[in-house]
Amino acid sequence: MTKKLAVFIAAMGLVAALYLQRRVSRAGAPNHDLPAPAVALVDLSGNNVSPARYKGKVVLINFWAAWCTPCREEIPQFVALEEKYGSRGFQAVGISLDDPEAALRDFCREYKVNYPIVMGSQKIAEGFGGVLGLPTTFLIGRDGRIHAKYVGTTDFPKLEREIAALLAAGP
């Protein structure tokens, strides 16, 4: 009887530990290795900037808002990445959530944004598996699959290493 109880307790402990471990990995890399969603993205100039258009490139999708302080602070670093890697097969795309269009255009002028900006929507956000906090950034490999997802402030040194590695992997 006592042995059975001991086995039962150990089994429960193992189940609890496995459950918590699973939650950690889920929170760390949701949407990982899924194909990039087939969403239609049109930028402020009316151009098609959907992920499918950039097949073969390394694509960064940044969900952000001009009213969001940490998002704003990241923009110059995305501009720098586009400048540095744009000619080597890298493409950044910004998707703004809940910004008035006029304010967004002003912001892009002021920050000299050198990559396409899209007015976001519920449909676009849900196409990426849901965006329930800003900033959120996805990195799509040349194979069209989501390589990484950053929720919250982006770790730029890590991001740049990943971009360089994905670019080096070749088409």
Partner: peptide, 11 residues
């Protein structure tokens, strides 16, 4: 065994 299970869960 219970202590080990509890420790694993806490970690």
């Amino acid at each position: 065994v219970a202590a080990a299970a509890l420790l694993t869960t806490l970690v």
